[in-house]
């Protein structure tokens, strides 16, 4: 047999064996009640903690409160309805700047007062103006009919996704809070404990297993249902419960952070509030259901322009303590 024939046969076999995989926007997961209240908050007390991969002891000299879970689709829908009623946001066409190109997208948007601009290499200016908060795009987990936003029933307790940094920031500010800084987020995620010279690499401990968090190829419930990519899991899903859905069951490990926060590793990246000098990027923490497990380590971050939105990016808010 000639090598070329073998190559052709193998290629045909391979291409033939590739089964189509469903896209995230085409998935409708069953509703799963995790028993975790997304309206709950915890206080992170002042004090130092090991920050970053190299465990630099860093002091946070104030108490602050942080949400126990990511903001859910239902919470965001409520915000949109309230904000629409008060005129803080509006529905329409928004300019979305991507590098040197500007495109128009329909969705929800509002005002942002702009950011300091240093004119540094690769930095893009974020001027005061109207910005897209959430596009009306495929995969959106809420509907907009008759001037009312409604969370899709199967996604009510999933993390809100597909909102830009502006959309996440607007939610937190509307609630009287703000997005966490990277330092605040990491302290809430890993706590203050040091074991063998290192702070915790994951919110729940030193090792990661598929039942700890929702990440790429973690074989979670939705990966089993919808294929390798899976989907987001409801907030607080990894709390030690065994879920019975249809004929199958799935047991999770209790993966709360030392302060009792859920989903601080995996599920969705979370927008941070920092606006660093000389750059326009906004940072994200935590990794997502698209991420390999290494990106779930608490010090890993991701970044994108504040106009970026994705089915794997969500957020949670903080409030300054009393």
């Amino acid at each position: 047999m000639k090598p070329l024939s073998v190559f052709v046969c193998l290629t045909t076999l391979l291409l033939g064996s590739c089964a189509p995989a469903p896209s995230v926007s085409a998935i409708t997961p069953p509703y799963v009640d995790t028993g975790i209240d997304p309206n709950s908050w915890v206080t992170i007390p002042a004090g130092s903690f090991p920050y970053g991969q190299h465990d630099h002891m860093t002091d946070v000299d104030y108490d602050y409160e942080i949400m126990v879970t990511d903001v859910t689709v239902e919470q965001y829908a409520n915000f949109l309805n309230e904000a629409l009623a008060t005129g803080v946001i509006s529905v329409g066409e928004y300019d979305v700047e991507e590098g040197e190109t500007i495109r128009q997208e329909e969705g929800v948007g509002g005002f942002h007062p702009g950011d300091p601009f240093d004119g540094y290499k690769h930095e893009e200016e974020i001027q005061a103006g109207q910005y897209l908060y959430m596009p009306f795009t495929d995969g959106l987990r809420l509907s907009y009919e008759g001037g009312v936003f409604t969370a899709l029933p199967s996604y009510v307790n999933h993390p809100m996704t597909l909102m830009t940094w502006f959309g996440a920031n607007a939610y937190c500010e509307f609630q009287g809070g703000r997005l966490p800084t990277e330092i605040e987020w990491e302290k809430a995620a890993r706590g203050t404990e040091i074991i063998n010279g290192h702070g915790l690499p994951f919110p729940w401990g030193e090792e990661i297993h598929g039942n700890n968090a929702n990440y790429y190829s973690s074989f979670d419930l939705f990966e089993k249902m919808f294929g390798k990519l899976g989907n987001t899991t409801p907030v607080g899903f990894y709390n030690g419960q065994t879920y019975l859905i249809g004929d199958s069951s799935y047991t999770t490990l209790d993966s709360a952070s030392p302060y009792g926060l859920y989903d601080m590793g995996g599920n969705v990246w979370q927008w941070m509030g920092d606006d660093y000098p000389d750059q326009h990027y906004r940072y994200m923490r935590g990794g997502s259901f698209y991420s390999y497990e290494v990106d779930l380590r608490v010090w890993k971050n991701n970044s994108a322009a504040p106009t970026y939105y994705s089915p794997s990016v969500g957020f949670r808010c903080v409030q300054d303590g009393d």
């Binding site: 391979l14 064996s17 590739c18 995230v24 990519l229 698209y290 089915p311």
Partner: peptide, 18 residues
Amino acid sequence: AESEQQALVNTLMLLMDV
């Protein structure tokens, strides 16, 4: 797009591995 990538990713990963 990220949300539509899995079929392509599966095929490419398979070809890479093979």
